Simulated assay, not measured.
Amino acid sequence: MYQWDFGSLWQFRSIIGIGFVYTLGYTIACIALGLLVGLLVGLGRLSTNPFISGPLRAFVEVFRCTPVLVQLVWFYYALPVLLGIEMSAGTAAMLSLALYGGAFYSEIIRGGIVSIDVGQSEAGWALGMTRFQLMKRVILPQAFKRMTPPLVNQSIMQLKNTSLLSVLAVPDLLYQGQIIAHETYRPLEIYTLVAIIYFVILLPATIWAKRLETRLSAQHG
Rank of each mutant, 00 (worst) to 15 (best):
Gln142Met: 12
Leu140Phe: 14
Phe144Ser: 13
Pro55Glu: 09
Gly177Cys: 14
Leu79Phe: 13
Ala123Lys: 06
Leu69Arg: 02
Gly177Arg: 11
Gly17Asp: 09
Ala218Ile: 05
Val194Thr: 13
Phe63Gln: 07
Pro80Ser: 10
Leu134Ala: 02
Ile85Ser: 04
Val62Cys: 05
Tyr185Asp: 12
Trp4Gln: 05
Gly90Asp: 14
Ser96Gln: 02
Ile156Arg: 05
Ala103Ile: 04
Pro80Leu: 09
Arg13His: 15
Cys30Met: 10
Tyr198Lys: 01
Arg215Ile: 02
Tyr191Gln: 03
Leu95Lys: 02
Gly19Arg: 00
Ile52Met: 03
Trp208Thr: 13
Val81Asp: 11
Ser53Asn: 14
Val60Lys: 04
Gln142Asn: 13
Ile113Tyr: 11
Tyr105Ala: 13
Leu36Gln: 01
Gln11Asn: 12
Val81Gly: 03
Ile15Ala: 13
Ile28His: 03
Glu213Lys: 09
Leu35Tyr: 07
Gly102Ser: 13
Leu188Thr: 11
Lys210Ser: 09
Ile109Ala: 09
Val194Ile: 15
Leu202Gln: 12
Val170Asn: 06
Pro67Ile: 02
Ser53Phe: 07
Val81His: 09
Ile190Pro: 06
Glu122Leu: 12
Val41Asn: 07
Ala93Val: 09
Gln158Pro: 01
Tyr198Cys: 11
Ile52Gly: 07
Lys210Gln: 14
Val167Pro: 01
Leu46Tyr: 06
Gly102His: 06
Gln71Pro: 01
Ala98Trp: 08
Ile52Leu: 15
Glu107Phe: 04
Arg45Asp: 11
Glu107Arg: 11
Thr27Cys: 07
Leu140Cys: 06
Ser106His: 06
Trp4Asp: 00
Phe59Tyr: 15
Val21Ile: 15
Thr192His: 07
Ser106Gly: 05
Ile156Lys: 07
Gly42Arg: 05
Glu183Ser: 15
Ser88Ile: 01
Pro141Tyr: 02
Tyr191Ala: 04
Leu46Asn: 10
Tyr77Cys: 04
Gly84Ser: 10
Leu203Ile: 13
Val118Cys: 03
Val41Met: 07
Leu173Glu: 09
Ser155Met: 03
Ala78Thr: 12
Trp74Ser: 05
Ile190Ser: 03
Gly112Thr: 13
Ser96Tyr: 06
Glu61Ser: 00
Ser47Thr: 14
Pro141Cys: 08
Tyr105Asn: 08
